[in-house]
Amino acid sequence: MMYNLYVERDSILHRLDPRVKILSSLLGILAMILFNSPYLLFILFTLLSLSLRFLGKISFKEQIKVLKPLTPLIIITIAIWPFILEPKTFGLFIGLGYALRLASMAMITFGLLMTTTQRELILGFIKLKMPYEIGLTLTIALRYIPTLFNLAQTIIDAQKSRGLELEKGNFFSKIKKTVPVLIPLIIASIKTAHELSIALESRAFGANKKRTFLYTIEMKGKDYIALIIVFLLFGLALYARYQLGIGYVKLY
């Protein structure tokens, strides 16, 4: 399991303020929704990949590695459109457009995650007025996934040793056999949550209204310049779509 996509590099994208990168990613995703023409989206996808390569120093090999799990989703998208739109070649054309849109959106979000550490990312969201409790809850949840996963395996093994045959029987009896696994798993989780909340309170969680941070971030000149460039590019995308009418194919 890969729970951190961050790639350590010294690049322009890595050094930008996380808030700039988060806002740019949002605008980038919005810009992708404006277009559905495969020609334009292919150009945008290539530009994204190139900028990640040269501004973020993330090699094409690394980019392919994170995009690979999307293959089934992309194949389904391309394959399903010829059955929806007539003629079939036009359906395929639109399917390619939608697949490229998904790939571009993935490139933007994975680009953000590959150039920003988790700590910077959460700090960025908090500075953008996300309640910090959400960030804390997310971190705790993340920390407990492997623990609960192992616990589930242990419970399955324990119940198997008592004669539970999970693999046998028809569909209905198979799913009924998950009950003796689920109940101990949930009770153990509730007990863990209870202990965790006591641990949080014993460290005076929520005692002070105002919080200070060990690490802080500050917007510098280059961050403002980057933000202006991103807004200009987004304006250009809006202009192209609504004034020049390029990049959008009418479906019906």
Partner: peptide, 14 residues
């Protein structure tokens, strides 16, 4: 949010 809220929702998300 109280400590209890955070702990329980984190565990059930996990």
């Amino acid at each position: 949010m109280k400590a209890k809220d955070i702990a329980y929702s984190a565990l059930f998300a996990a």
